[in-house]
Design a protein around this nucleic acid. Structure first.
Length: 871
RNA sequence: AGGCGCGUAGCUCAGUUUGGUUAGAGUGUUACCUUGACAUGGUAGAAGUCGGCGGUUCGAGCCCGCCCGCGCCUACCA
């Protein structure tokens, strides 16, 4: 085996072999209990980022272990067509390369280009996903816009329409003037913007010397005003309700009305009403039967029945010019700096324009009800639980979902309109003639569905729900959905609604929520901040295993992760450590080892590690069962490095000629490879194969379980004692600057016959690890030459002085230790002298304190005596 | 405006659900060591008023209350 671990050599080969050997392939006929997950499909436009690495690694760890535990596992991969994002990119390319717009080449031609582009882009993202080593069943790979998915989407749409849950209506929606489509509420990000609050005088019609002042952040919308509203309880304006004002610049007069939704405190308490361009105004207008005047078009330019000079002008420019004009006319009372929330398009960051248009909506209230119930009843569990609240909060206030988009790339809405009689026909395939009037002049709705509509169906559409497949029967509901908190509303909530409605059951029983990946300063990663860590770079330089382990050990459920390079490097060193420890074991194996070793022929150290490993396995399983992946990773890390490598491998160097000890060495290494395999699939497989796996793969082996035959409590405690004596001896050596290479005669003293026996059984380990040429246990140090002293509870250590100068130093050190021990005794004594404590605390705790106290007192006495000796 | 979360070693973070003996990890840092698995290493250290105050308790990093600082989500105040 090579002296240092070659990442590329190991990580390149195995994935292909695993896939070729169908290791990840699910079996829908299996009698084993199923465990299934659906991969959150990455966007076809995307490239792998750290968020993916985390969201994919954690479930991979889970499913690999589940498979090893004997479950019939399925992890189904897929890719999302990502409506707006993809269309925008391809449109941009088309403009850049051919200077053409999509309208110029037409819908069909454009879509052909998108499909070509999708094929290329998909290949790239999938290659990147593969680098993570995920146990995905590629034979079941799905695409959200494939024919198969389209059939499901269409059927669902038609069914919902027939159930009257999908309807078409004219409402105020969010419109992105840049993407040129409507957006759902969720696709709008509210951001604080420094704006101006402009106070404008609207002169009264009956007496133009008087006016009512309104405050607005968007003066340009005044051209579409159809009223001014005040609160009915606002005394300042009570006499004006019902009066008319002259709308400046527009040569129209509008009424002053009253409405409870108007706040008296904000601005002047009077608000201009622009029903076509503001959601609040829209709802007030509905109540009062006000006219809608559209003055801003879908591109964000001024339009409609407005003064000539503004027509076609951009909304921001118009705001400036119009304000100037008002100022000239003396109609601006004042302008104030004003920070307010403005909706922005999530994709392109353009400020959205509230817009009235006719769109398709999904009625959500009825679907939400059972979806709330299943979480309340814990049929679906959020991990960590706190995300339930977020889910409930949204579900309880859910609004109807605007599902149509003015795009070409997506699932076309299966609605057909008769141009002769305006009949709307919703069905899975295009009608030949109108079902009402028989006309053949029929056109399909040009719009497509929100990308998230197909995503909402993902857990059952991918399993062949439509065709009643065995996959659906075997693997639905799925077991676990691992995803980020940012898409609980977008995706999780909607999957639950659709899953219950169409899948007739919850889509998954657990939702594992992971946090955000940040940089090492806790900042969000973004291209503009130039702090993005690319997982592919990390994999290239430090390996997938190191990246996976770093993510795993840091992934506290639901918490953000600050990812630092130094930490990754630290775990890369750990991977190397695993390599070298394995190298040691493998180098020492002779080929005659057996996992069926003779318990009577193994050493006390063997029993110690078997016991310790057994306990660790038990704890690991408990942690993993509770999705505490990070704690399991931490536990294994510590145990492997600081118990197995630091102690056991050192002990074992003394027992290498014992065939049964070598067997334990091989056995324990094998167990470690199994335990680590879900976290670090590559290096563990490599090492497992080197120890002679005989055609099997780690994933086919049974995950370690607690075994009662490996309980050796006494031996475990004995070695723990010897470890302490060794550490104290080493400490005495290094503290006194004894050359590490020098072999010494070491003298020990103990007050316990029992511990003396224990020690003698492990003396060889002691000699080996303390560089003792000869160890003598003596009843008394007084007849010996003076030396450095180490003190444990029941033990004393003496390392003879090389020369006399050392004595002072030694005294000083002992005094310090005396003080430390003494203060500890005082603290424990005060605790134990408290009757309340001894009476009420559990016996185990009290006894623990008592034991520690006795040990400390012993130690103190010994130090005291030693100090006297040396003085 | 509501809701959620965070504050623990120089830095980045576990541990708090279930209170219990001397609070852990990575990195950094000190001394020594090219010991035959490993210098991506070893041995032994130093380093923390667990944000502040108060309460409950025999006992609080952990439970409760208040305060300070920071972050996020939701929401139609023009």
């Amino acid at each position: 085996m090579e002296k240092s671990y070659d990442i590329a050599k190991t990580e390149e080969g195995w994935y292909k072999i695993w896939v070729e050997n169908n290791l990840f392939k699910a079996d829908n006929k299996s009698k084993k209990p199923p465990f299934s997950m659906i991969l959150p499909p990455p966007n076809v436009t995307g490239s792998l980022h750290m968020g993916h690495a985390l969201t994919f690694t954690i479930p991979d760890i889970i499913i690999r272990r589940k498979k090893m535990e004997g479950y019939n596992t399925l992890w189904l991969p897929g890719v999302d067509h990502a409506g707006i994002a993809t269309q925008m990119i391809v449109e941009k390319n088309l403009k850049k390369e051919n200077n053409q717009s999509k309208e110029e080449i037409g819908r069909d031609n454009f879509l052909k280009i998108v499909w070509d582009w999708k094929d290329k882009s998909e290949k790239r993202i999938l290659q990147q996903v593969e680098k993570l080593g995920l146990a995905l069943d590629w034979s079941r790979m799905k695409f959200t816009l494939s024919k198969e998915m389209e059939d499901v989407v269409t059927k669902v749409f038609v069914d919902l329409y027939r159930e009257k849950k999908i309807y078409r209506g004219t409402y105020m929606v969010n419109y992105c003037p840049s993407c040129k489509t409507v957006l759902s509420d969720l696709e709008v990000d509210h951001r604080e913007v420094n704006g101006k609050l402009t106070y404008i005088k609207y002169p009264l019609k009956k007496d133009s010397t008087k006016n009512i002042i309104v405050a607005t952040t968007r003066p340009e919308t005044m051209l579409g005003d159809t009223a001014v509203a005040v609160n009915p309880d606002d005394e300042r304006y009570s006499g004006l309700i019902g009066e008319e004002v002259l709308l400046p610049l527009a040569k129209r007069s509008i009424k002053i009305i009253s409405d409870n939704e108007v706040s008296r405190e904000f601005g002047t308490g009077a608000v201009k009403i622009t029903p076509a361009h503001d959601p609040l105004d829209y709802s007030i207008a509905l109540r009062h039967g006000l006219e809608h005047r559209v003055v801003i078009d879908q591109m964000g330019n001024m339009t409609g029945d407005i003064p000539e000079e503004y027509i076609g002008m951009n909304r921001e420019e118009c705001r400036k010019q119009l304000t100037e004009k008002l100022r000239e006319k003396g109609l601006i009372e004042k302008e104030e700096e004003h920070i307010h929330n403005v909706g922005h398009c999530q994709r392109c960051e353009t400020a959205v324009e509230p817009n009235i248009s006719r769109q398709w909506f999904l009625k959500t209230a009825e679907l939400a009800k059972p979806s709330i119930e299943v979480v309340e009843k814990k049929r679906i569990e959020f991990i960590p639980e706190k995300w339930e609240k977020v889910y409930f909060n949204w579900m309880n206030n859910i609004q109807d979902w605007c599902i149509s988009r003015q795009l070409w790339w997506g699932h076309r809405i299966p609605a057909f309109y008769c141009r002769s009689c305006n009949e709307i026909i919703v069905q899975t395939s295009a009608p030949e003639k109108c079902t009402a009037c028989g006309s053949t002049d029929i056109i399909q709705d040009p719009d497509v569905l929100d990308t998230w509509f197909s995503s909402a169906l993902w857990p059952f559409s991918t399993l062949g729900w439509n065709s009643g497949s065995d996959d659906f029967k075997t693997f639905y509901p799925t077991s676990l959905m691992a995803t980020g908190f940012d898409i609980i509303f977008f995706w999780v909530a909607r999957m639950v609604m659709m899953g219950i409605h169409f899948g007739k059951d919850i889509p998954f029983s657990k939702v594992l929520i992971n946090g955000l990946i940040r940089d090492e300063k806790g900042q969000k990663m973004s291209k503009t901040k130039n702090n993005v860590i690319d997982p592919l770079d990390i994999i290239e330089q430090h390996g997938t295993d190191a990246l996976r382990f770093t993510l795993a050990i840091q992934a506290v459920p639901g918490m953000d992760i600050s990812l630092s390079l130094s930490r990754i490097k630290g775990y890369k060193a750990f991977v190397n450590k695993i390599w070298n420890a394995s190298r040691f074991v493998i180098m020492n194996l002779k080929g005659d080892e057996s996992f069926d070793f003779d318990k009577n022929r193994i050493t006390i150290a063997d029993k110690w590690i078997l016991h310790y490993l057994n306990m660790t396995i038990k704890e690991t399983n408990t942690l993993m069962d509770n999705y505490r992946i990070n704690e399991a990773a931490d536990l294994l890390y510590h145990f492997f490095w600081h118990e197995y490598c630091d102690w056991y491998l050192e002990f074992s160097k003394n027992d290498i000629n014992n065939r049964d000890s070598r067997s334990v060495l091989k056995y324990t290494l094998f167990r470690f490879m199994q335990l680590f395999h879900p976290f670090m699939p590559f290096i563990t497989e490599e090492i497992y194969q080197k120890t002679g796996a005989e055609g099997k793969f780690l994933l086919n082996t049974e995950f370690p379980q607690f075994r009662s035959e490996n309980v050796f409590t006494e031996e475990y405690l004995n070695i723990e004692l010897v470890k302490k004596i060794i550490t104290e001896t080493r400490k005495t050596r290094t503290e006194n600057k004894i050359d590490p290479g020098t072999k010494l005669n070491i003298f020990l003293k103990t007050g316990s016959e029992k511990e003396k026996e224990i020690f003698l059984r492990s003396e060889k380990y002691f000699n080996f690890l303390t560089k003792s040429s000869k160890t003598e246990i003596v009843p008394d140090f007084s007849s010996l030459p003076k030396g450095f002293r180490g003190v444990l509870s029941n033990w004393e250590i003496l390392l003879p002085f090389e020369n006399d100068e050392d004595r002072e130093k030694e005294l000083e050190r002992l005094k310090k230790e005396f003080k430390k021990t003494d203060s500890m005794i005082i603290s424990i004594e005060s605790k134990l002298s408290n009757e309340n404590f001894t009476k009420r605390a559990p016996e185990k705790i009290v006894n623990g304190f008592k034991k520690t106290l006795q040990e400390s007192i012993d130690k103190k006495t010994k130090i005291e005596k030693t100090i006297k000796d040396l003085s």
